[in-house]
Structures are given as C-alpha cells and as structure tokens.
C-alpha cells in the first residue's frame, strides 16, 4: 500500500466521521437552503436538553423541530418567519441569539454594565491609593 492510498483511506475515514453529524433525514437539495437550515437550527435551543441547539441535539423534539424548519424552508418561508413561528410557541428562550428589543435590553446590556461597574471600582481604588503616602519599603528614618 503506497502513501497515497493510505492518505485516501485516512481522508475517507475522516469524512465518514463528519457524516455522523449530518441529520439522518438527509440534506436539502438546494445548498443555499441547506446553509440557512444549518444556521437557523444552530440558533434554536433544544428545550429538552436546554444547553444544546436544535442542530446538535438527538432528542426527538429536536428531530421534530428540524423537520419543521426544513418544511418551512422548502415552503419558501423567510428566516424571520421561522423564528417568529418558534418564539410564538416556545418563547424567546428558544433563541440563542434573541433580537435586541425592550425586553432583552438587560441581557444585551449586562456585560457593558458590569464592565462599567468594574471600571468605577478600579477608578475608586486607584484614587484612594494615590492619596496614600508612598511606602517604598525602607524603614522610617524619623
């Protein structure tokens, strides 16, 4: 067996491994639809095992939701229509990437608020320290 057949075999094994990840119901014929299918299902939370996406989960509900997304895509529904369909049934929690709106300002704003609070604390500490006498570690001479 030469190196090329070995490499080919290795490549096939690797590709075969990747194929496990593909949904058992097969791909959509249109690659553009398939790409949208993948991005939508990655952004939907599987509500059974709440830390997995619909794309990744093996739960039967995730399977049903993938079928639903696939059918809606084939029927010509837009991404916002599909997300609206899901949030109307499962609430905003179903989305990993919730839209920026009045209800979600706090979620999106929290990191910046915490950063601001941190800056404030650091600023206060620095101001207090800068007023302290400098201690250079030398014994007091007086």
């Amino acid at each position: 067996m030469n190196i090329r057949t070995a490499l080919l075999g290795f490549a096939l094994v690797m590709i075969g491994g990747a194929a496990w990840c593909v949904d058992a119901n097969g791909q959509l014929e249109d690659p553009a639809l398939q790409a949208r299918f993948e991005s939508i299902t990655k952004d939907l939370r599987c509500l059974v095992c709440q830390n997995e996406s619909v794309a990744d989960s093996n739960a039967s509900l995730a399977d049903d939701l993938r079928r639903q997304v696939r059918e809606m895509l084939v029927a010509g529904k837009t991404d916002p229509q599909i997300f609206d369909y899901m949030t109307a049934r499962y609430g905003e929690f179903v989305r990993y990437n919730p839209p920026l709106e009045a209800k979600t300002y706090l979620i999106w704003g929290a990191p910046f608020l915490l950063l601001l609070a941190g800056v404030g604390i650091v600023y206060r500490i620095m101001r207090v320290r800068s007023r302290m006498p400098i201690d250079d570690g030398m014994p007091d001479e007086s």
């Binding site: 509500l47 059974v48 509900l61 049903d64 939701l65 049934r89 499962y90 609430g91």
Partner: peptide
C-alpha cells in the same frame, strides 16, 4: 405520532 400538534402547543417535555 409526528409531534406536530405538540409543536403547535409549545410542548417540550
């Protein structure tokens, strides 16, 4: 058996 009505009702468990 297809879980379609369950999806309409937002059933997850």
């Amino acid at each position: 058996n297809e879980g379609r009505v369950a999806i309409d009702w937002g059933v997850y468990g």
